[in-house]
Design a protein around this nucleic acid. Structure first.
Lengths: 121, 121
DNA sequence: CTTGACCCTGGACCGTACTCCACTGTCCAG
DNA sequence: CTGGACAGTGGAGTACGGTCCAGGGTCAAG
C-alpha cells in the first residue's frame, strides 16, 4: 500500500510516516516512480510503535527493537529473549509506578500532604 | 538553603533548578541581594517531581499538581481527592503496561513474532 | 584590596518528535 | 490535455526539557 492508505489505516499523518521512515523506524520499498510502498504488516507494526511510545519508550529505542528483530529474523529464541527483556523493562516500570502509588496512597486522608514537604507555595 | 546546596542535595544542576522555578514548578524566596532561598522541603518536592516525571508526567502536569496543592492548602479533603485522582492516573498507566506485557508474553516462544506483523526488514 | 566561591540575568543552543510549507512530479478521468 | 488527487523533496518552525555561556554582582578569607 502507499503512504496515504497507511496514514488512513493508522491515524498517523503522511509527514509522521515519512519522519518514521527517515528515523529508521519503518522500512519501505519504492515503486518505479519513487512512491513508497508498505507491506500490510506495517499497520500492526505502527500500532505497536505507538503503544510502546505511549509507555515511555523513545523512537530510538523502538527502532533498535525493530533492528534486533530484523537481525535475529531466523532465530526464534532470540526473539523470545528480546520480548522477555522488554517484559522485564515493563515490569520495572510497573514496579516504579507501584511505589509512586503507595506514596500517594499513604498521603490520602492524612495531615501530611506533599505540601508540608516543600511543594511550591 | 541556596541554589547550590539544593542542587547538591538533589543531584540537579543549578540551571535545571532555575528552569524549574521559571516554569512554576518550584517557588523560592529571595535574600536582600537577590539570591534564591529554598525551604528544606524543596528537596523532597524535587524528588517527587523527578519520580513523577520519570513515570511520564510532563513538567506542566506536575506544576499543576503543585498549584492545586497550594490553592487547596487548608482543605485536607481536596488534597486527598487530588492524590486519589493521581492514583487513578497511575492505575490507568499500569493497566496499559499490563496490556503491553500480555502482548509481549503472548509472543514469547511462539512462531509469530512482531516481525511477521510488519516490523522493518 | 584582591581572589575565589558563589550567585544573578538573558539569550543562544541542543535533542526529540513531530508539523507545516513551498515547490515539483505522477497518474487517471473527463 | 487539463484538472485534481496523490506522491516526492528539502527546509523551516514548534513544543518540551533542559544545557551552556557571557557578562556581571556578592561576600568571606587572606
Amino acid at each position: 500500500m502507499r503512504i496515504g492508505e497507511l496514514a488512513a489505516r493508522t491515524g498517523l499523518t503522511r509527514d509522521t510516516i515519512r519522519f518514521y521512515e527517515k528515523s529508521g523506524l519503518l522500512v519501505s520499498g519504492r515503486t518505479a516512480n519513487g512512491y513508497r510502498v508498505f507491506s500490510p504488516g506495517a499497520v500492526e507494526w505502527l500500532r505497536y510503535v505507538r503503544t510502546a511510545q505511549a509507555l515511555g519508550f523513545s523512537l530510538a529505542e523502538i527502532a533498535r527493537t525493530g533492528e534486533e528483530l530484523r537481525g535475529a529474523a531466523d532465530t526464534a529464541g532470540a526473539l523470545s529473549a528480546l520480548f522477555e527483556e522488554k517484559i522485564r523493562v515493563v515490569d520495572a516500570r510497573m514496579a516504579e509506578l507501584a511505589v509512586l502509588r503507595a506514596e500517594l496512597a499513604a498521603r490520602v486522608g492524612t495531615g501530611c500532604p506533599l505540601r508540608a514537604s516543600g511543594a511550591p507555595g
